[in-house]
């Protein structure tokens, strides 16, 4: 028996019709857009510079977006099902943080949002995610370098979650109530991320010779990017306290490698964005 492909232009309608609801824009950008800040007062407090606040939220949002994408690349590839699910959940938390932060940036300073063709239904946070060039992304290099093995991912997540959690604990009292609320919520999520990464770091360091070798290789490879990460988040001594605690219990020395010089991005970001953005860019009106 042959299976006939549904024709979306069939005069009797398509089997997909009911799925679209009232949204005529197809699925590229979801059905029926919702503003993640619907009803939230996004007025920038008078003591803050709106452009500066937007740039800061963009940087925080881009870090979450890019690492979320890297983590989601593990989907169906992790060492076991539990960790596949864990990494997907962490990616989802970070994607949520990215969405809120990009929306907050756009509300604070609409000029950061790329211009799209008239009639494009793309919401601002998607416009920022899918229609900026690599050079306009403000993320640190730590989050963009390509995935290595699982140990590399564990080391990266430990460094990132430790630095970001410490910063978010501070940002929870930021003068912008929207950023403060996003940070306060993120603290709870990042606490789980840091614990997850810390436990795996310890397990791999104290596991087999091979797991320890891989962990040290991952950590040493990432360490040149740690200084930039710490600087971007204004990391204080509390970050070193946590990292030294993990290193000590794991029997791992803090790597002695020089920070990577330069700034901007590595080639890895362009490659990642090419894949992440290709569908949205091919269909900027969300229709095909």
């Amino acid at each position: 028996m042959s299976h006939q492909t549904p024709d979306p232009n069939d005069e009797h309608g398509s089997v997909y019709d009911g799925l679209l609801g009232t949204d005529t824009s197809q699925w590229a950008f979801g059905t029926d857009f919702e503003d993640p800040l619907a009803g939230v007062d996004t007025t920038v407090p008078s003591e803050l510079d709106a452009a500066e606040l937007a740039a800061y939220c963009l940087a925080l949002g881009d870090d979450a977006l890019v690492l979320s994408h890297r983590l989601s690349e593990w989907c169906s590839n992790a060492p076991d099902l539990e960790d596949d699910i864990a990494l997907a959940n962490i990616a989802l938390d970070l994607l949520g943080q990215a969405r809120l932060l990009l929306a907050r940036a756009a509300a604070a300073d609409p000029s950061v949002v790329p211009t799209l063709p008239d009639g494009s239904p793309v919401p601002v946070e998607d416009a920022l995610a899918f229609f900026r060039e690599a050079v306009d992304f403000r993320n640190v290099r730590m989050v963009e370098v390509a995935n290595g093995d699982f140990a590399h991912t564990v080391a990266r997540l430990l460094l990132f979650a430790t630095v970001r959690l410490a910063a978010f604990e501070r940002l929870a009292t930021h003068a912008d109530p929207v950023l403060a609320a996003i940070a306060a919520k993120g603290v709870k999520e990042l606490t789980y991320h840091r614990d997850y990464a810390g436990r795996w770091f310890l397990t791999l360091a104290q596991g087999t010779e091979e797991s320890r070798r891989r962990l040290l290789a991952g950590l040493t490879g990432l360490w040149p990017l740690q200084a930039e990460l710490a600087r971007a988040y204004d990391a204080g001594p509390e970050v070193d306290v946590v990292l030294d605690q993990v290193f000590a219990v794991s029997g791992v020395e803090r790597p002695d490698v020089a920070p990577m010089t330069g700034r901007g991005h590595t080639e890895a970001l362009s490659r990642m964005l090419a894949e992440m953005q290709v569908v949205a860019r091919a269909h900027p009106r969300g229709q095909w």
């Binding site: 619907a38 809120l100 929207v178 919520k185």
Partner: peptide, 11 residues
Amino acid sequence: AQVEIALSPAW
């Protein structure tokens, strides 16, 4: 009906 979001206090 319309639905609004409250971010604070966090759930």
